[in-house]
C-alpha cells in the first residue's frame, strides 16, 4: 500500500467573499481590501486557495494589477522591510 500523503487534506467549503457579501466592491483604490488577497510577498492568492469565484477573481486580478501600477501595492513584497 502506497501512502501518498501523510495527512489527509482538510477540505472546507470556501465561499467567494464578494458573492457572500455584496457590500464589498472590488476597487483598485482600496489597497487594504486587496491586500487580503495577496500574500505578504505581494503575490495574488490563487482562487484555489482563497475560494474566490472566477468572476470576482478576474476583477480582483485587474484591480490588484492596477493598484500595483500606481504604487498602492507592491509588485514584489516587503523583502527589505522584513
Amino acid at each position: 500500500m502506497v501512502v501518498r500523503r501523510k495527512k489527509r487534506v482538510f477540505h472546507r467549503r470556501k465561499v467567494c467573499r464578494f458573492c457572500a457579501d455584496k457590500g464589498i466592491t472590488i476597487d483598485f483604490k482600496d489597497a487594504r481590501t486587496l491586500k487580503q488577497f495577496t500574500t505578504d510577498r505581494g503575490k495574488i492568492i490563487p482562487r484555489r486557495i482563497s475560494g474566490t469565484c472566477a468572476r470576482h477573481q478576474r476583477q480582483l486580478t485587474t484591480a490588484i494589477k492596477r493598484a500595483r501600477s500606481i504604487a498602492l501595492m507592491p509588485f514584489v513584497g516587503n523583502v527589505s522591510d522584513q
Binding site: 495527512k7 457579501d21 487594504r32 482563497s50
Partner: peptide, 25 residues
C-alpha cells in the same frame, strides 16, 4: 466596511492555515 474587514482578517488566518497544510503535504 469595518465589520467586513474584521471578518476578512479571520478568513485570512484560515487561508494561511490551509496554505501551511498544503506545504506540509
Amino acid at each position: 466596511d469595518a465589520g467586513d474587514e474584521e471578518s476578512g482578517v479571520e478568513d485570512m488566518d484560515a487561508e494561511d492555515d490551509e496554505e501551511m497544510e498544503e506545504e506540509e503535504n
